[in-house]
Simulated assay, not measured.
Amino acid sequence: MSEEVSFGYENVDPVEKTRRVGAVFSNVAAKYDIMNDAMSGGMHRLWKDRFVSRVKPQPGEAILDMAGGTGDIAFRMADRGAEVVVADINQDMLDVGVERAMQRGIDGLVWSCQNAEQLTYIDKQFDAYTIAFGIRNVTHIDRALAEAYRVLKYGGRFYCLEFSTMTWPGMKEAYDFYSHRLVPQIGKIVAGDEESYRYLIESIRRFPPMPEFERMIRDAGFVRTRVEPIMGGLVAIHSGWKA
């Protein structure tokens, strides 16, 4: 029997998942940032600010921002003087990011179409590796973590911002109702795409809980791993170091 992986609540062939995820992000690229504001009430901006403050990008550091798409994380790190490569498997998302950078007058970013599971970069190239709201869409998460470890220098740091499992009593049920019932409808109204946002919510539910994902980061070789829940685990910042 061939291997199957999750695409939302459905199990599919890995090649089919990669194709479908690509289609989802091509469909939502143009409205991606507007939808982030609509779905989170603008909270995603605060989460990203907090994430970058944890990364502590330094002037001259080489940082790979994987699944960086429209540039939200990269712009923040470039403001602090880091030399950022924005990588994403989806060229449509990168195109939106390049356009946003031009509109903002942000120069110096490198934009690259990359598969997180098979990066084209040499070993020990980057001081930090960041990935925000992207790793749950990777077909083989363990391979992406292994690649992150490979391209980091010794002493390099890994930071991941991702949706997780809310643990606040009573809030989990309310959030489940909001995400499953209302977010796809918001996607239909704002982006004209209900099904893509239904998948994105389902992908959150299939993502490993915080302790399990931390274990996967350790299994990839990272040490001093840490999990920082935000809003009771609605989102979480995961980190680790390459020793």
Rank of each mutant, 00 (worst) to 15 (best):
E173P: 01
F222D: 02
M231W: 04
A29S: 09
M77S: 02
E61K: 08
R224G: 03
S179G: 07
I237F: 06
W47H: 09
T225R: 00
I237G: 10
F163Q: 05
Y149D: 06
V86C: 10
H44G: 00
E212L: 14
A78D: 05
S203P: 01
G42H: 00
Q103C: 04
A148T: 02
P59C: 13
I89C: 11
L64I: 13
K31V: 11
V28M: 02
P14M: 06
P209G: 00
I201Y: 08
E99R: 14
L152H: 03
D95Y: 00
I73N: 08
R150C: 05
H238M: 10
S203F: 03
S40V: 11
P229A: 05
I89S: 13
Y32S: 06
V227F: 03
V5D: 01
D88W: 03
A67L: 12
I135Q: 06
D176S: 14
Q185T: 12
P14V: 03
D107R: 15
F75R: 02
Q125P: 08
S196H: 07
L46A: 09
I189W: 14
L94H: 05
G155R: 03
E83Y: 10
V138W: 01
D123R: 04
I186S: 11
A29N: 05
G41T: 10
E147K: 00
V110Y: 07
G97I: 04
E162W: 00
I217N: 09
T167F: 09
I63Q: 07
G233H: 07
F126I: 07
V223T: 14
I201V: 15
G221C: 04
Q118W: 04
F7R: 08
G192W: 05
D88Y: 02
A30Y: 13
S112K: 12
V24H: 05
I89K: 11
G108Q: 10
R136S: 10
Y154V: 15
V21A: 02
R224C: 10
Y149L: 11
A78P: 01
A146H: 12
G170L: 06
V96E: 11
R19H: 10
N36R: 00
L119Q: 08
E194S: 09
V227P: 06
R20E: 05
R50V: 12
R198G: 12
W241H: 13
F133M: 09
S179P: 00
I73A: 11
M171Q: 09
E99D: 13
R76T: 04
I201Q: 08
N27F: 05
Y149S: 11
Y199H: 04
S179W: 10
G156N: 03
Q125L: 12
A220L: 02
Y199I: 07
I230N: 05
F7N: 05
A101H: 02
G155W: 03
S239R: 09
M35Y: 01
E147L: 01
V28N: 06
E99A: 15
E202L: 07
N27A: 15
Y175E: 13
F222L: 07
L234Y: 08
F158V: 09
M35A: 12
M166S: 06
M216Q: 15
L152A: 00
L182S: 01
T120K: 13
L46C: 06
V5H: 03
I122V: 14
M216T: 08
V15C: 00
L182W: 13
G187Q: 10
K172I: 03
G240M: 08
R181A: 14
P209D: 14
K242Y: 03
E173R: 13
F7C: 01
F158S: 03
P57C: 11
T167G: 13
